[in-house]
Design a protein around this nucleic acid. Structure first.
Lengths: 187, 187
DNA sequence: GGTGCCATGTAACGCGTTACATGATTAT
DNA sequence: ATAATCATGTAACGCGTTACATGGCACC
């Protein structure tokens, strides 16, 4: 799910110290996942607390080298074997925003859709441009960009679909309670 | 981003007490975002602390009714106006997993791809089945399912793309350090 | 002497999340 | 009586994240 698993995978490749883990993590994920060095040490501490990692040696330069425990190795194997699952209740900001707007009737859902579409389209253009500017040998970064591009395209398709379905919707009955002194929030 | 914004939007529709917020939140998002009642109160407390929400009245039944403050209303307007942005460093478990596997060379990336594809395909089938079983008038739930479907399809396309590009990759030189006593983790 | 990189760490905060405690009212 | 629903709340944990402190070493 997060940094934990990342560090564990890197440690499966052999014992390493924190600073090196940070380096490899960035080498592996590049700009796709910037990592504050502090996080490596906090995470390493938590992994040790949970018995997934233990101190291997303190090497000649005084660096603390960690290695996986048996439990740690099992965890790595599990994580790599187990697919990322598509939970029905996957938190998604965009759909949440739309469903809530739809329900609360406090802003025009179509305005939300339009705003989002504009933003996603420019994002998509930027991604394509970035892809062209990328060194063709930088496979990880290219793959990551493709992932973002496909996601963005899927989002655009969904926005179209939402717009199509939206007019079919019956208007919710007017609010029963006191009308709040809320000016229409439509952008 | 989270529950905070959800509650704020609902409160933009008029002052409400916690329990009612929980009800409306579930009504709006359905199974798409189950909400523990405790979260409503903790979140409400934090919103009050941050001056986005304040106590309106304690009604006849002794329920504490909250309303938006001026800052709260501004925050709602902002959130609804501002598109969900596509950060280049958006955390994505699947791509992270793949990039790290690619780098660490501790498992076969193709195995990861295959596992994921199988899982995503069955998930997709389940989603289509669910969609057919859904009441055609339940617009929010249908929209949410469509979002998940489009996401899953995008993921499958990406997996194909990864598989195509993967063989082009030159093998990393063999590990320099001591080979860890790690059995190949390939599922 | 100063700049910058290598290297380790801690204190603190924020949000999401759960588990638990408490009590009133309503329905069976 | 007692089970369910309405209603509020708190304590605690986990992870991600940042800001800060510290020190060695190399290079100019």
């Amino acid at each position: 799910m997060g940094i934990r698993e990342g560090l564990l995978v890197l440690l499966a490749d052999g014992p390493k110290h924190g600073y090196r883990l940070k380096g490899e993590f960035e080498e592996a994920t590049g700009q796709a996942w910037p990592l504050n060095i502090g996080q490596v040490y906090t995470t390493l501490g938590r992994l040790e607390r949970d018995g997934l990692v233990e101190l291997d040696t303190t090497d000649s330069e005084g660096r603390k080298v960690y290695r996986l425990t048996k439990a740690g190795r099992a965890e790595v194997r599990d994580w790599l074997t187990r697919p990322v699952d598509h939970r029905l209740d996957a938190r998604d900001e965009l759909s949440m925003k739309l469903l809530l707007t739809l329900f609360a009737g406090v802003a025009d859902p179509l305005a939300v859709v339009d705003t989002q579409r504009a933003a996603t389209m420019t994002a998509l253009q930027d991604l394509h441009r970035l892809k062209q500017e990328t060194d063709p040998d930088d496979l990880p970064w290219l793959l990551h960009l493709d992932r973002l591009i496909l996601r963005a395209e899927a989002e655009l398709r969904w926005l179209d679909l939402v717009e199509d379905r939206l007019p079919e919707r019956r208007r919710r009955p007017a609010a029963v309670h006191e009308p709040a002194e809320t000016e229409e929030v439509t952008g």
